[in-house]
Amino acid sequence: MATAVIDGLFSDEVFTATELNRHVGTVLDHACVRPVTISRNNDLFALVKREYAARMIRTMAQMKSALSLLAEAHVAISGESPAPVFAWLTIYEKDDLQRLFTEVLDAVGRAASGASDWGDVQAVIHEWEESALVAKSGVLDQAMFHEPAEESPLPNPDEFLQYLEPSQMAAGESCPESTSQ
Protein backbone atom coordinates (compact mmCIF):
# COMPACT_ATOMS: atom_id res chain seq x y z
CA MET A 1 0.00 0.00 0.00
CA ALA A 2 1.03 3.62 0.34
CA THR A 3 3.32 2.82 3.23
CA ALA A 4 5.23 0.41 1.04
CA VAL A 5 5.59 3.14 -1.54
CA ILE A 6 6.96 5.52 1.04
CA ASP A 7 9.40 2.85 2.24
CA GLY A 8 10.38 2.39 -1.38
CA LEU A 9 11.61 5.95 -1.60
CA PHE A 10 14.45 4.93 0.68
CA SER A 11 15.44 1.85 -1.27
CA ASP A 12 15.56 3.48 -4.66
CA GLU A 13 18.14 3.86 -7.40
CA VAL A 14 19.90 7.13 -8.08
CA PHE A 15 20.48 8.57 -11.53
CA THR A 16 22.01 11.87 -12.46
CA ALA A 17 20.15 14.39 -14.56
CA THR A 18 22.65 13.72 -17.34
CA GLU A 19 21.87 9.99 -17.22
CA LEU A 20 18.20 10.83 -17.40
CA ASN A 21 18.80 12.93 -20.51
CA ARG A 22 20.85 10.27 -22.23
CA HIS A 23 18.97 7.14 -21.15
CA VAL A 24 15.45 8.29 -20.46
CA GLY A 25 13.95 4.94 -21.47
CA THR A 26 16.14 3.01 -19.07
CA VAL A 27 15.44 5.37 -16.20
CA LEU A 28 11.70 5.18 -16.80
CA ASP A 29 11.90 1.40 -16.94
CA HIS A 30 13.43 1.46 -13.47
CA ALA A 31 10.80 3.93 -12.30
CA CYS A 32 8.14 1.48 -13.37
CA VAL A 33 9.52 -1.04 -10.88
CA ARG A 34 10.36 1.22 -7.96
CA PRO A 35 10.89 4.90 -7.24
CA VAL A 36 14.13 6.34 -8.53
CA THR A 37 15.99 9.44 -7.49
CA ILE A 38 17.28 11.97 -9.98
CA SER A 39 20.12 14.10 -8.70
CA ARG A 40 21.08 17.47 -10.11
CA ASN A 41 23.70 19.47 -8.28
CA ASN A 42 22.43 19.56 -4.70
CA ASP A 43 18.81 18.77 -5.51
CA LEU A 44 17.21 15.35 -5.39
CA PHE A 45 13.99 14.49 -7.17
CA ALA A 46 11.81 11.43 -6.73
CA LEU A 47 10.48 9.86 -9.90
CA VAL A 48 7.55 7.54 -9.25
CA LYS A 49 4.61 6.21 -11.23
CA ARG A 50 1.71 8.56 -11.13
CA GLU A 51 -0.57 5.96 -9.56
CA TYR A 52 1.86 5.63 -6.65
CA ALA A 53 1.93 9.38 -6.20
CA ALA A 54 -1.88 9.51 -6.35
CA ARG A 55 -2.11 6.76 -3.73
CA MET A 56 0.29 8.60 -1.45
CA ILE A 57 -1.69 11.81 -1.75
CA ARG A 58 -4.94 9.96 -1.12
CA THR A 59 -3.41 8.27 1.90
CA MET A 60 -2.33 11.61 3.30
CA ALA A 61 -5.81 13.03 2.77
CA GLN A 62 -7.47 10.05 4.44
CA MET A 63 -5.02 10.16 7.31
CA LYS A 64 -5.67 13.87 7.77
CA SER A 65 -9.42 13.29 7.77
CA ALA A 66 -9.19 10.50 10.34
CA LEU A 67 -6.82 12.48 12.55
CA SER A 68 -9.16 15.49 12.46
CA LEU A 69 -11.98 13.30 13.71
CA LEU A 70 -9.81 11.75 16.42
CA ALA A 71 -8.68 15.17 17.59
CA GLU A 72 -12.29 16.37 17.82
CA ALA A 73 -13.33 13.16 19.57
CA HIS A 74 -10.62 13.87 22.10
CA VAL A 75 -12.02 17.37 22.55
CA ALA A 76 -15.51 15.93 23.08
CA ILE A 77 -14.22 13.36 25.56
CA SER A 78 -12.70 16.16 27.58
CA GLY A 79 -16.12 17.77 27.79
CA GLU A 80 -15.57 20.63 25.36
CA SER A 81 -17.50 21.38 22.18
CA PRO A 82 -16.02 19.93 19.00
CA ALA A 83 -15.76 21.93 15.78
CA PRO A 84 -19.15 22.48 14.10
CA VAL A 85 -18.45 20.00 11.32
CA PHE A 86 -18.09 17.31 13.98
CA ALA A 87 -21.04 18.49 16.08
CA TRP A 88 -22.61 15.04 15.68
CA LEU A 89 -20.05 13.78 18.19
CA THR A 90 -21.94 15.54 20.98
CA ILE A 91 -24.74 12.95 20.88
CA TYR A 92 -22.33 10.38 22.28
CA GLU A 93 -21.39 9.93 25.89
CA LYS A 94 -17.84 9.55 27.05
CA ASP A 95 -17.69 5.75 26.87
CA ASP A 96 -19.16 5.81 23.36
CA LEU A 97 -16.54 8.32 22.29
CA GLN A 98 -13.77 6.21 23.72
CA ARG A 99 -15.05 3.27 21.70
CA LEU A 100 -15.19 5.47 18.59
CA PHE A 101 -11.62 6.54 19.26
CA THR A 102 -10.46 2.94 19.55
CA GLU A 103 -12.34 1.72 16.47
CA VAL A 104 -11.13 4.53 14.23
CA LEU A 105 -7.58 4.23 15.48
CA ASP A 106 -7.60 0.47 14.86
CA ALA A 107 -8.96 1.02 11.36
CA VAL A 108 -6.27 3.62 10.65
CA GLY A 109 -3.61 1.22 11.91
CA ARG A 110 -4.84 -1.56 9.64
CA ALA A 111 -5.01 0.75 6.62
CA ALA A 112 -1.58 2.23 7.30
CA SER A 113 -0.06 -1.24 7.54
CA GLY A 114 -1.71 -2.29 4.31
CA ALA A 115 -3.91 -4.89 6.02
CA SER A 116 -7.04 -3.12 4.83
CA ASP A 117 -8.14 -0.32 2.57
CA TRP A 118 -8.62 3.29 3.58
CA GLY A 119 -12.21 2.88 2.51
CA ASP A 120 -12.67 0.79 5.64
CA VAL A 121 -11.61 3.75 7.77
CA GLN A 122 -14.14 5.95 6.03
CA ALA A 123 -16.79 3.26 6.49
CA VAL A 124 -16.18 3.12 10.24
CA ILE A 125 -16.40 6.91 10.50
CA HIS A 126 -19.51 6.92 8.32
CA GLU A 127 -21.20 4.33 10.54
CA TRP A 128 -20.51 6.39 13.66
CA GLU A 129 -21.81 9.56 12.04
CA GLU A 130 -24.92 7.84 10.68
CA SER A 131 -25.64 6.33 14.08
CA ALA A 132 -25.37 9.79 15.61
CA LEU A 133 -27.78 11.23 13.04
CA VAL A 134 -30.32 8.51 13.78
CA ALA A 135 -30.06 9.16 17.48
CA LYS A 136 -30.32 12.90 16.95
CA SER A 137 -33.46 12.52 14.83
CA GLY A 138 -35.32 10.46 17.41
CA VAL A 139 -37.08 8.31 14.79
CA LEU A 140 -35.65 5.08 16.10
CA ASP A 141 -36.41 5.97 19.72
CA GLN A 142 -39.98 6.61 18.67
CA ALA A 143 -40.19 3.36 16.73
CA MET A 144 -38.49 1.15 19.30
CA PHE A 145 -39.86 2.52 22.53
CA HIS A 146 -43.12 4.37 21.85
CA GLU A 147 -44.96 3.06 18.79
CA PRO A 148 -47.49 0.24 19.11
CA ALA A 149 -46.43 -3.22 18.03
CA GLU A 150 -48.76 -4.79 15.50
CA GLU A 151 -46.37 -7.20 13.93
CA SER A 152 -46.94 -8.65 10.49
CA PRO A 153 -44.71 -10.12 7.76
CA LEU A 154 -42.75 -7.66 5.67
CA PRO A 155 -43.93 -7.86 2.05
CA ASN A 156 -41.58 -9.49 -0.39
CA PRO A 157 -40.76 -6.77 -2.97
CA ASP A 158 -41.22 -9.19 -5.88
CA GLU A 159 -44.72 -10.11 -4.75
CA PHE A 160 -45.64 -6.55 -3.88
CA LEU A 161 -44.41 -5.02 -7.12
CA GLN A 162 -46.00 -7.56 -9.46
CA TYR A 163 -49.48 -6.36 -8.49
CA LEU A 164 -48.76 -2.73 -9.25
CA GLU A 165 -49.75 -0.92 -12.39
CA PRO A 166 -46.77 0.22 -14.47
CA SER A 167 -47.87 3.82 -13.99
CA GLN A 168 -47.59 3.42 -10.22
CA MET A 169 -44.12 1.98 -10.62
CA ALA A 170 -43.00 4.84 -12.82
CA ALA A 171 -44.48 7.48 -10.57
CA GLY A 172 -43.08 5.91 -7.41
CA GLU A 173 -46.14 7.24 -5.68
CA SER A 174 -46.80 6.71 -2.02
CA CYS A 175 -48.66 3.53 -1.08
CA PRO A 176 -51.83 3.45 0.94
CA GLU A 177 -51.58 1.36 4.08
CA SER A 178 -54.07 -1.11 2.62
CA THR A 179 -51.37 -2.45 0.31
CA SER A 180 -49.76 -4.19 3.25
CA GLN A 181 -50.08 -7.92 3.58
Binding site: E147, A149, S152, P153
Partner: peptide, 28 residues
Protein backbone atom coordinates in the same frame (compact mmCIF):
# COMPACT_ATOMS: atom_id res chain seq x y z
CA UNK B 1 -38.47 -14.25 8.71
CA UNK B 2 -38.79 -10.51 8.17
CA UNK B 3 -41.36 -8.92 10.43
CA UNK B 4 -42.62 -5.34 10.31
CA UNK B 5 -43.30 -3.81 13.70
CA UNK B 6 -46.51 -2.16 12.51
CA UNK B 7 -48.39 -0.82 9.50
CA UNK B 8 -46.32 2.33 9.43
CA UNK B 9 -43.24 0.23 8.71
CA UNK B 10 -45.03 -1.66 5.94
CA UNK B 11 -46.14 1.58 4.33
CA UNK B 12 -42.60 2.94 4.48
CA UNK B 13 -41.25 -0.30 3.04
CA UNK B 14 -43.75 -0.35 0.19
CA UNK B 15 -42.89 3.25 -0.68
CA UNK B 16 -39.25 2.30 -0.64
CA UNK B 17 -39.96 -0.65 -2.97
CA UNK B 18 -41.57 1.76 -5.42
CA UNK B 19 -38.74 4.27 -5.26
CA UNK B 20 -35.80 1.89 -5.59
CA UNK B 21 -37.14 -1.57 -6.39
CA UNK B 22 -33.86 -3.26 -7.22
CA UNK B 23 -32.18 -2.02 -4.06
CA UNK B 24 -35.20 -3.03 -2.00
CA UNK B 25 -35.10 -6.54 -3.45
CA UNK B 26 -31.45 -6.91 -2.62
CA UNK B 27 -31.96 -5.54 0.87
CA UNK B 28 -34.80 -8.02 1.37
Amino acid sequence: LLVAQNKKVIKGWNDLCLQIPENAKRCY
